[in-house]
């Protein structure tokens, strides 16, 4: 046996290794990805026409309803994907794979970031497909802005992924609690961000609630970016909300990992 000197790895290397391990499940079984690509198209295809009818031409959405709605769909698939980070972890907690990885020198943050990035990986492909499909229907495409929008979602998604990871650890003895919490938080957050329907016509309390929802700022930033504006305060607000979410998520996640083996 070659005796190897202990060698340290950087956090970025750790993240890449964790991400690649997770992504291998898609690489080795690509059918799951194909299914997940169809999903947002179905949503867009069935929901979009309803919104157009609701709005009339150039009504409450201030222009094309597609331009308004599509960024929301992309935020939604980000939320669906990254809030599932912990679900995939649950299975590995039940087997010993989670503990085995905790016993390696991998940086704790890389365990969460790597997993969250794996959930975000198909998102890039999904976003590209949804956007390209929408172009013939009158969607105006600003590629660079969309790219910035994806980076924003990446930062925010890492935060959501880390929180989902922490939730899975907290619920490791009673599995259903993970789903109960994930589901009962996900939909209120989505609706109160104005992602599916505009909140301007809603009651006062909903608008107030949306102000403390970080997702609201992310959705607004995405809308600004997808319509080709970069120098909008909404974009800055979105990045602040994303960075704060990521920082809080990682802090909570690392605390959860420390307590995970107790």
């Amino acid at each position: 046996m070659t005796v190897l000197a202990p060698r340290s790895t950087g956090v970025l290397t750790d993240i890449r290794n964790v991400w690649w391990r997770e992504t291998l499940t898609i690489v080795r079984d690509p059918f799951s990805l194909i299914f997940s690509l169809v999903q947002p198209l179905v949503f867009l295809g069935l929901f979009g026409p309803l919104l157009s009818g609701l709005a009339g031409d150039g009504g409450m959405f201030g222009g094309s309803s597609l331009q308004w709605f599509l960024p929301g769909v992309i935020v939604m698939i980000t939320m669906f994907g990254t809030s599932m980070t912990g679900a995939n972890l649950q299975f590995e907690i039940m087997t010993g794979a989670f503990e085995r990885m905790l016993a390696t020198p991998l940086a704790r943050s890389s365990l969460m970031v790597g997993r969250a990035l794996k959930e975000l990986t198909p998102l890039v492909v999904q976003a590209a497909i949804v956007t390209l499909v929408a172009v013939p229907f009158g969607f105006a495409l600003y590629p660079l802005h969309v790219l910035v929008g994806l980076v924003l979602l990446g930062v925010f998604g890492v935060g959501v992924g880390a929180l989902s990871y922490a939730l899975a650890i907290a619920a490791r003895r009673t599995e259903w609690i993970f789903w109960a919490v994930q589901q009962s938080l996900l939909f209120p957050l989505l609706i109160l961000s104005g992602m599916m329907l505009p909140l301007e016509t809603g009651p006062e309390w909903m608008r107030v609630a949306s102000l403390v929802n970080p997702l609201t700022y992310v959705v607004d930033a995405e809308r600004a970016l997808f319509s080709g504006t970069l120098a909008d305060p909404a974009v800055l607000n979105g990045f602040v909300a994303a960075v704060v979410t990521a920082a809080v998520g990682l802090a909570v996640g690392i605390r959860a990992i420390r307590g995970a083996t107790a």
Partner: peptide, 23 residues
């Protein structure tokens, strides 16, 4: 408990474990 992830191939898990340790 089983340290290897059930959804992975045997060789993939071993290779990655080595990478986790900086090989």
């Amino acid at each position: 408990k089983d340290g290897a992830g059930h959804n992975y191939r045997v060789r993939d898990e071993l290779l990655l474990q080595g990478r986790f340790y900086g090989l």
